[in-house]
Amino acid sequence: MAPPVEAFDAFARQVADVLGTPYAMLNWVGDEQYFLGLANPADSELPVLGRTLPLTHGFCPHVVQRRGSLVLTDVLDFDAFAGNPVVDELGVRMYAGAPLIDKRTNHVWGTVCGIDIEPRARSQGRPVWTRIDHMRDLLMTELYLRTSP
């Protein structure tokens, strides 16, 4: 496993700020989930996440599979997601994630996402969706600039 890269953690902190969430991740999804960028809550009683999670935990593997963004303003409103282990283990109530799709290869590398322990009003769904897609686009643009031949 590679050591943390401060630039990716800084980006995750920007995502958390933009979404108003205590957690945000730049999540590479493979045999497990690896948080290449991670923002944990600062000065809080909330649990601190490590750099990995199994594919059975959280909602990012679903975003990768469907190749589309997902916003759950209250995960408990959705039977398919309410029973996920992160709901009980971390208290996750809101999730917003966007897939990182490489337009050059059409491969989905992972997601950029934010989670909160507080649900959001349904009316916040569309604005959150717009913000998470915007953050995804910023990241992918920067990656293309740095990796293009």
Rank of each mutant, 00 (worst) to 15 (best):
N84Y: 07
R104E: 14
L100N: 06
D74K: 00
M140V: 10
R120V: 02
L26E: 08
P47T: 07
P127E: 04
M135V: 14
Q14L: 07
P22M: 10
Q65M: 12
Y34E: 12
L76N: 03
L145I: 00
L90R: 05
D133T: 07
F35P: 05
P149S: 09
L100R: 04
V64G: 05
A96M: 02
H107A: 14
A12Y: 08
S44A: 10
V63H: 00
P47F: 04
Y95T: 13
T105N: 06
A82D: 04
D133A: 12
A24C: 12
A2L: 13
D77H: 11
Y23W: 09
A80L: 06
T147G: 03
M135N: 14
V63Q: 06
V64I: 07
P61C: 13
V48K: 07
A10D: 05
R66S: 15
V15Q: 08
S44F: 04
V71F: 06
L46C: 01
R131N: 05
V87G: 15
R126L: 14
M1V: 05
R104T: 11
E118L: 11
V92S: 01
R126M: 09
R66W: 12
G110I: 02
G125P: 01
G110M: 04
V108K: 08
F78A: 12
P22Y: 04
M25H: 01
A80F: 02
A121F: 06
V18C: 06
G20M: 00
E142C: 15
R120M: 05
G97M: 09
D116T: 13
A82M: 01
T130H: 04
T147I: 03
